[in-house]
Nucleic acid binder design. Sequence first.
DNA 1: TATCGTTGCGCAAACGATTGAGCAAGCTGA
DNA 2: TCAGCTTGCTCAATCGTTTGCGCAACGATA
Lengths: 339, 339
Amino acid sequence: MATLGDVAARAGVSISAVSRVLSGAPDSRVSAATRQRIVDAASELHYRPNFAGRALKSARTQVVGLVVPDITNALFTELMHGAEDEATEHGYTVLLGRSDDVRPGGEVIARLIGEGRVDGMALQVGDGVPPAGLDDLLTTQAPIVLVNSSAPGHSGSVVLDDQRGAQIATGHLLELGHERIAFANGLPRSFTAKRRHAGYKLALDGAGIKVPKQYETRAGYTVDNGRTALRRLMALTPRPTGVVVANVNAAVGLLGEARKLGIKVPEDLSVVTVHDSWTAENTWPPLTAVQMQFYAVGRTAVRSVIRRIETGETSDEVVTDPPPELVVRESTAPPHPRG
Amino acid sequence: MATLGDVAARAGVSISAVSRVLSGAPDSRVSAATRQRIVDAASELHYRPNFAGRALKSARTQVVGLVVPDITNALFTELMHGAEDEATEHGYTVLLGRSDDVRPGGEVIARLIGEGRVDGMALQVGDGVPPAGLDDLLTTQAPIVLVNSSAPGHSGSVVLDDQRGAQIATGHLLELGHERIAFANGLPRSFTAKRRHAGYKLALDGAGIKVPKQYETRAGYTVDNGRTALRRLMALTPRPTGVVVANVNAAVGLLGEARKLGIKVPEDLSVVTVHDSWTAENTWPPLTAVQMQFYAVGRTAVRSVIRRIETGETSDEVVTDPPPELVVRESTAPPHPRG
DNA sequence: TATCGTTGCGCAAACGATTGAGCAAGCTGA
DNA sequence: TCAGCTTGCTCAATCGTTTGCGCAACGATA
């Protein structure tokens, strides 16, 4: 590839003149004619600034890392889009990682930051709980913003309004007339599970409804976890007439298990899930869901990382605008009037 | 972060000695004692080689770009895992991109290569057809390997054994006794669609079966395309008793539309899909599928890119080992004996 | 006419790592 | 005893950019 030197030679000027013109320095003090020759030469040679040279000199890569638990999870598509849009607007690039890689103890993250491959990171770890090995990293001055997760002593985070989401989902079942409302939640240690639990509780308390403790399962967020949750709930007496599932993947599994057990949705059991995605539209019946604002979270997270990089400021934010929105499909109905 | 200079100072040696020891040069000619002092100093200072410095000097980043049409598509998880495993074994890192970004004309790819952010790329474009703007890039000497796609005049590609996959799927329906077998294929211009068509045709011809031309739809690979395909097929007389769907997402849509139209699967219509993924297990009924070897494709593609980078050799490969494998679930059955 | 401020550039020193060449000390063999 | 080899390091150039400083040339001012 052409270098600054090549362009300089072709335009008959010095390297510094070329650098100043092409990097758009404001006080470049170059005559219009020279400027034009430089620009022409650069485009004739298809000049592109070398990433390594620039990064080495400026100690900035203009790259932010984004690590999510599972990039193939439809939930994170929007998050990534939001992150990329925000990054692009600020002249940054997003480097995508999977947090599978993170498990062993943040080694990959330490590398990305330590080797100077990224200027900062937005990090969403599985189940919202950073693995132990990440502690020292998070307490460093490294510009890391946690997404939908938290760590003791770490400042810098962006989270969904989980509580409100779960509250809306629960409220939907209440409005339909359900009283025996179960909650298929994530693992007890999960940060988001705690917040969603609070929303569920708040809605029930607001309606003056009490349910048995066993109505809340904490099996986790995977498809299989959803199957487990349904089996546990259906073993109870009386059975719940409706269930709020804290995650769409678990809801898909729960729905599959219901069919296997011969439980009709929504006639025997109403199902509403927190999170919407294309999979929710394509189950049978299509899932009623509370759409969470992943796009906004992605944008906010990257904005926060960049602010941290450039000004050093940190912040902890809850994305409440736009608010979570209920999408009614066919998996919910009034409770069956059998007694 | 600590630099080589810092480590050198602490160990009381020169920068070059440190570099040679830490980068594991074979003929470093350093005494055991000095070597130990250097290693200790490096670990005490948490030294990590600066990415930019190394890349600048060596003109190598040890990064390969991997661009796929839709990173949230479950089909590509395995591909990415394969790519990352292979890369890691060779001391490379994978930089993930979406080819949404590619559409405007390969601008992102040109940047990644031109700015020296990656040493080479594995590129799978949507529908297997590289957009026009990519042409000049592909005809350059740039180490780009196409995945499940092809471009005129470009050498360097790795593809699935699409033909065999479609042939196996069709063969499964034939063995069940179906004769009126339809094929819901991808868009006509799609590279993979052509190959899958060939497999379908081969199986039918082998069994000496002829079907109307309309039995093959070419709506595309999305969920909605699957819905469209089913509507078209069910408008035909006589209706097919079985359908091979060329893509799992389309199969999910097709299944949803069948339910909407009151068509029972597998009683009225057997459905088998090429590609397996977690979504195929969680539809109702669970989808019979031909599992394609995406993991192997990922590995092979990255191996090919690295070989291209390091030796300049190019190759065009079809991944046939392990072969595509039929996973029988509940969406296929013998044709209904109604005459 | 000497002085000064501005305009329009070029020079050269970094940034951190790699690597060929060089050089002193110690050992070997004749 | 000394040439010649090996061992164990150091020196310094280099990759492509950025950027503070310097320095001519020129017009304006005193």
